[in-house]
């Protein structure tokens, strides 16, 4: 202990203390960072996605219309409960790897991430090697033989090493999990659907965000608050009359409220926008069946189209075939199962 105090002068103590304060501050900032809310997650993802019509800008920065559409998609998916990785994967599936502004750490482009590490390591090796070979030509000095005192090289190395370690550990702790969590496993952000309160706050902040309105409607519907949900969907449709998820949900609510006469035109509109929308085909068939009371050619046509566009393992196929057997007139779509939740 005495030796240590002799080695460390007043200015060294001040330096060590200052370094420790910085290190603790960085560590504290990393540990106390607020949990990622929907907004900050959306912004983080938007900064990583490339605007397809711009030159190297992210969709977060770009003023282009296509970027605005992609931002809406990101928010819509996050609001529906997708994880960050799933949202990125969605865009990669649509546009290819090119859409990510930085290749993922674990992917085929790992070499890119290794490059800086290799470059620095090579530089350090070269410098150390040169220094060694120069040392060899001069009388070798051993650490043990070094005088110990405030001016010695040993104390510089000791103090410098302590400072470097103190700084490196919290920075690694701050950055490491984020890198590993977000890039490799994607497990840093738990996959939970945002709460109704979250979404309501979000919608209050951005009252014209159609995707958020729809997501809030979905959440309310899932909580069996169909009336409130319908209001949100209507608000969304006022902003964007052609929003397919909102139209589908409104139609489903009308069906559930036993208003097949009003539900039919809603599904007609969806199918005018997107002729092969399977949910709309199925629900229009149900609506027509209830309205007519029998299996008409129209119902058959919708069911046939539904069967043609869905994959063979779709669970709703049995229900669709049941419709044709006329025994299913009592079938009412459960509002939480189909519409609103985006098809993967």
């Amino acid at each position: 202990m005495m030796g240590l105090t002799r080695r460390v002068g007043g200015s060294d103590a001040a330096l060590l203390l200052a370094t420790a304060v910085v290190a603790v501050s960085v560590a504290l900032a990393a540990l106390t960072s607020p949990d990622a809310d929907l907004e900050s997650r959306a912004r983080a993802i938007e900064a990583q996605l490339r605007c397809p019509t711009c030159q190297g800008l992210s969709i977060a920065d770009s003023p282009a219309t296509s970027a605005a559409q992609m931002r809406a998609l990101v928010r819509e998916q996050l609001a529906a409960g997708a994880s960050d990785d799933e949202v990125r994967a969605f865009f990669v599936a649509r546009y290819g790897r090119w859409i990510l502004l930085a290749p993922p750490l674990g992917g085929p482009d790992l070499a890119l991430w290794l490059a800086p590490v290799v470059i620095v390591a090579a530089g350090v090796t070269l410098v150390v090697h040169r220094a060694r070979s120069r040392e060899r030509t001069q009388p070798l000095r051993r650490w043990a033989a070094l005088p110990v005192g405030p001016g010695s090289r040993l104390s510089t190395v000791l103090i410098g090493g302590a400072m470097a370690l103190a700084l490196a550990v919290p920075i690694a702790a701050a950055v490491g999990p984020r890198l590993i969590g977000a890039e490799i496993s994607g497990g840093a952000v738990p996959r939970t659907a945002p709460s109704i309160e979250d979404l309501e706050a979000f919608v209050r902040a951005e009252p014209r965000d159609v995707a958020a309105l729809v997501a809030l409607g979905d959440a309310l519907l899932a909580a069996d608050r169909a009336g409130e949900a319908a209001d949100r969907y209507k608000a969304a449709l006022e902003l964007d009359p052609n929003n397919v998820p909102a139209l589908l949900s409104v139609g489903a609510i009308l069906l559930a409220a036993d208003r097949p006469d009003a539900a039919g035109p809603v599904f007609d509109r969806v199918l005018a926008l997107s002729p092969d929308q399977p949910d709309a085909l199925l629900y229009r068939a149900v609506a027509r069946l209830r309205l007519e009371g029998e299996v008409t050619e129209d119902v058959r046509g919708d069911v046939a189209r539904f069967l043609a566009v869905t994959s063979p393992d779709d669970p709703r196929r049995a229900m669709a075939q049941g419709l044709l057997e006329d025994s299913a007139a009592s079938l009412a779509p459960s509002a939480s199962s189909g519409p609103g939740s985006p098809q993967p």
């Binding site: 900064a47 990583q48 190297g56 790897r97 090119w98 859409i99 502004l101 930085a102 890119l112």
Partner: peptide, 12 residues
């Protein structure tokens, strides 16, 4: 195939 290397990589 095309890949992008942009701000997120360089900043980090």
């Amino acid at each position: 195939t095309r890949v992008s290397v942009g701000a997120p990589y360089f900043e980090r």
